[in-house]
């Protein structure tokens, strides 16, 4: 057996909380790589992101500036971190930071840091606000939706969509509203958190199912695993799930990847209605937090993504285990104040 290749990977999304970022599951997949021996540099926005303190998974952590600070501030910070850590690959895991990382790809490449992200066009095209157009273009069922920037637009949109309807934030969060008053309430809540526009989407009654997939940027699907949420938290996050044997879901992911030449990880959020029809609710342009289920089912998507980023040949996964489940749990870590102090004062630990 060949010795493992030593590489350093920067990973964001270390907020392993009740609405978890994908960072820690991504790292767990990477640590199980047969090919790489990986040192992990955690890139965090908040000093209390739990992943920072998971020393068996994260070797060193740095605070980085919020996406709202702009890409130049991010680049400046990454230059500093790279001087110390010599990072080979960065895996960004938040929707909100992807724009900056996509824009910075040439600068990062010049520094010797690889990323494997969708193009800006791919990223923008699948945006929630563009999803109806996306559905038409690629022949996919998408519930009707409207983007609104003012509560006065609610009445007109609701006339078409009928109640109940979904109220969605630009990047994250979604609520079901049964009356105009609820829409107004959620509008204000989401606008304050994620900005405008807000998306009002027709509610499709059915079962929530998801597909995690990885595209090679040439139209090939390297990995695809369908999952059904079995336990959903009050924030709508999967706290338990099970892999499914559903060729139609896998084929839908393959269809989208082929049509768009998708580059990188993605998650399709779907609803299967009573007639067994699928509706595409969202496309998340990155690896989702339940990625470790795919790893457990036989498709190490984080490892495959790193190989693609490094220009290594990657064979598409042909199989996965059906009926594999994940069940999340919460866990208390005991952390020394000195660790927190180092993060707070120096921005690294």
């Amino acid at each position: 057996m060949l010795p493992k290749q030593k590489i350093t990977i920067g990973v964001t999304g270390l907020n392993n909380i009740d609405s978890p970022g994908p960072g820690i599951p991504v790292i767990r997949g990477l640590k199980e790589s047969d090919v790489f021996e990986i040192r992990i540099v955690g890139l965090a926005y908040e000093t209390l992101e739990p992943g920072i303190y998971m020393r068996d998974l994260v070797d060193k952590a740095y605070i980085i500036p919020y996406p709202s600070g702009g890409k130049d501030a991010l680049l400046e910070r990454l230059v500093y971190i790279h001087q110390i850590e010599k990072i080979d690959v960065i895996i960004p895991n938040f929707d909100a930071e992807l724009y900056s990382f996509i824009k910075l790809e040439p600068e990062l490449k010049a520094m010797g840091i690889a990323v494997f992200l969708p193009t800006l066009e791919q990223f923008e095209e699948r945006h929630k606000t563009n999803l109806p157009e996306y559905g038409k273009k690629y022949g996919i069922n998408v519930p009707e939706s409207f983007e609104i920037t003012n509560v006065s637009q609610v009445e007109k949109a609701a006339e078409k969509l009928k109640f109940p309807l979904m109220v969605k934030g630009k990047y994250y969060d979604a609520y079901i509203a049964a009356a105009p008053e609820q829409v107004s309430y959620y509008f204000s809540k989401l606008a304050a958190k994620w900005g405008l526009p807000i998306i009002l989407q027709k509610f499709v009654k059915g079962t929530e199912v998801n597909v995690i997939a990885l595209g090679d940027g040439k139209g090939n699907t390297i990995a695809a695993v369908p999952m059904r949420k079995q336990y959903i938290t009050d924030k709508g996050k999967a706290w338990g799930g099970i892999t499914l044997d559903d060729e139609r879901m896998v084929n839908l992911a393959k269809h989208i990847i082929k049509q768009t030449k998708w580059r990188g990880g993605m998650e399709l959020e779907l609803v299967r209605d009573a007639k067994n029809e699928f509706y595409l609710i969202e496309i998340n342009p990155r690896i989702p937090a339940w990625v470790y289920l795919a790893v457990g089912a036989g498709q190490n998507i984080p490892e495959a993504l790193v190989k693609l980023a490094l220009g290594m040949p990657v064979e598409p996964y042909a199989n996965y285990d059906v009926g594999k489940m994940f069940i999340r749990y919460s866990f208390d870590m005991i952390v020394d104040l000195k660790e927190f102090e180092a993060l707070t004062t120096k921005g690294e630990y």
Binding site: V209, R228, D246, V322
Partner: peptide, 17 residues
Amino acid sequence: KNIAVSENGFVFDPSTG
């Protein structure tokens, strides 16, 4: 055809979970 039934009477539909 793809419905799994265990000897304990546990039935699993792999297409719906």
